[in-house]
């Protein structure tokens, strides 16, 4: 079951389901390791709906509006 990053629970292993739709965000996130199939995890919620995620071991802050568009799914569903 796909969900957005904004809907994902904290500290639960996730798998990236799709590339971002926004081209600017896609380019930036891809270089930071956002690729379909890669693992991620929401570490923290912060102001304005932003999320801090674990991506390739780094802490990346993703803005509130963008986190509502990024697709992920639970890692257990992906067989990880």
């Amino acid at each position: 079951m796909h969900m957005t990053l904004a809907e994902a629970p904290l500290r639960r292993p996730l798998v990236i389901a799709a590339a971002p739709e926004d081209p600017a965000a896609a380019q930036r996130l891809m270089t930071l390791g956002w690729r379909p199939g890669a693992p991620t995890e929401v570490i923290r919620r912060t102001t304005g709906g932003a999320r801090v995620i674990d991506l390739s071991g780094a802490r990346i802050a993703v803005g509130g509006p963008l986190s509502k568009t990024l697709q992920v799914r639970p890692a257990e569903e992906a067989g990880r």
Partner: peptide, 10 residues
């Protein structure tokens, strides 16, 4: 001015 969604390495 391009939209610049927040993606920042902490």
């Amino acid at each position: 001015l391009p939209s610049d969604p927040l993606v920042i390495d902490l």
